[in-house]
Amino acid sequence: MIHLEQLSKKYGDKVALDIEQLDISAGERFGLVGNNGAGKTTLFSLLLDLIRPTTGTVWSKETAVSNSDAWKDYTGAFIDESFLIGYQTPEEYFNFVGQLYGMNPSDVKLFLERFTEFFNGEILDSGKYIRNMSKGNKKKIGIAAALLGSPELVILDEPFANLDPSSQIRLKNLIRELPPELTVLISSHDLAHVTEVCQRIVLLEDGKVIRDIKDAPERTLEELEAYFAGEEPVG
């Protein structure tokens, strides 16, 4: 699904990201962890062609993302509040995003039904503009909008941050129930959440891939916690 090679991003002398090679296959649940400044958001921004790489190319379905807009047809994303239109109500926003993917308002309404529990009655028919909503509710809107338009690839930056405990659990269930062929990329500071929903965890530090843990869900959390505590890895 995604292939990147010799990808790097430098701001002046500072290296924000430097990855030799990374492949993400279709249907993978991919978790990205790392401390602040490790390069998580930089990587996602490069995948979405929001910044230009210093070297290297991002390939999505064998097409370079900077050369064609084809990837936009099957990619949904929520990075931060710059993905939300503050002066719209949530309904207007969902309808707008839906329209970009050829959905009419009744399609959108049908699509949003599965978020009823996640939204907890605070999003739809709230009578508020998005700009006046809480951070947690904005996040919920962004996550739902990222899934609009039946994407094949979904990129979510810190989806668990700012959510209350019930919403975090609901979000985990929501991600688990997503169709298995959907590729999901998640970054998180919360090791427990990300290891629960992702089979593959990539650990970034100073822009470099330090660990790439695949198919070992039972030991992943332990290993990550040991790493971030500054201990030497076991074995």
């Binding site: 979405l48 047809d73 994303a77 990075i79 710059s82 939300l84």
Partner: peptide, 12 residues
């Protein structure tokens, strides 16, 4: 400007 990223990253 406050939602320009979205305009550039979604299918606009």
């Amino acid at each position: 400007s406050s939602f320009f990223n979205m305009l550039m990253a979604r299918r606009v």
